[in-house]
């Protein structure tokens, strides 16, 4: 997986469909493995990127074609991730709160609503902005070296 001139370690351009997302995640995990990232940290990265990318496919692109641009920079103790798409903006131009979905006895288990909760649970410095018709999402993933 080639590095980017602007210093990112990994760069992916992913068509906005679920199968392309799956393939990109597998390629990302392989690349992180070859860079020595331990299994637990790879799992965290795979979960968070899966939820972020699936959200873009379902909501930002919502059936229309588009690319998702991901850059990941590996520092000593973190993965710095940036995800850019040119789909529809987030409702209210803000990130969903990602409250923990209920489990009994709080309420019936939900079939949805887990995605943003997982993203927020596993990431730090989650930031969203809209600029030039694009969605820009950035976040950090602390690794076990932290």
């Amino acid at each position: 997986m080639p590095g980017d001139p602007d210093g990112a370690d990994l760069t992916l351009d992913i068509p906005g469909d679920a199968l392309a997302v799956r393939q990109a995640l597998q390629a990302m995990v392989a690349a992180l493995t070859s860079r020595g990232l331990p299994p637990g940290d790879r799992g965290t990265a795979e979960i968070v990127l899966a939820e972020v990318l699936n959200n873009i496919v379902e909501h930002a692109y919502a059936g229309r074609q588009g690319l998702i641009h991901v850059t990941i920079r590996l520092d000593a103790a973190t993965l710095e991730c940036r995800v850019v798409d040119d789909g529809q903006p987030m409702p209210g131009d803000a990130l969903p709160p990602g409250d923990p979905p209920p489990v009994p006895p709080e309420g019936e288990p939900a079939e949805g609503g887990f995605g943003w909760f997982l993203i927020r649970s596993l990431s730090q410095d989650l930031t969203y902005r809209r600029a030039d018709g694009r969605n820009l999402l950035s976040f950090r993933l602390a690794t076990s070296a932290a």
């Binding site: 799992g43 288990p109 909760f117 649970s121």
Partner: peptide, 16 residues
């Protein structure tokens, strides 16, 4: 498996 277990545990769905 580990990543699957992590998803169930974080969401507390392992208690369901």
């Amino acid at each position: 498996t580990p990543t699957v277990e992590k998803v169930f545990r974080l969401t507390r769905m392992d208690s369901v």
